[in-house]
Amino acid sequence: MRRASWLPEAALALALIAAAAPGAAGELPAQRQAELRHLLDHDCGSCHGLTRRGGLGPALSATALGDRDDDFLIDTILLGRRGTPMAPWGSELSRDDARWLVDRMRGR
C-alpha cells in the first residue's frame, strides 16, 4: 500500500523555512529562469501538457488553479502528492523556484 498521509513535520519545516526567508522570487538569475521555463514546458508538460491545459495531471492555468493558495501549490510541487503521480520535486527545486513556477502558471 503506497498511499500514506503527508509527513506533517516535513510540511511544517518547509513552512517555517519559507516564513523565515520571505519571497525572494522574481529575482532568480536569468539562467535559472530559463532552466525552469524549460522544465515547466517539457518535464512538467509531459503530464500537465506543453501548454499546461492538462493531461494525466490537471490543467495548470490561472483559471484552473482558481483561488488555491500559492503556498499550497508550492508545497504540492516540492512535496508531491502521495499516492498520485505528482512526485516531490523538492530535491531539485528550491521554494523560490517553485514560487516562480506558480507565478508563471498564474500568468503573473
Binding site: 503506497r2 518535464d43 509531459s46 508531491g80 503521480p85 516531490p88
Partner: peptide, 8 residues
C-alpha cells in the same frame, strides 16, 4: 518506498 516518479 518507491522513488518519486518524474515521468510515467
Amino acid at each position: 518506498e518507491p522513488l518519486p516518479v518524474y515521468k510515467m
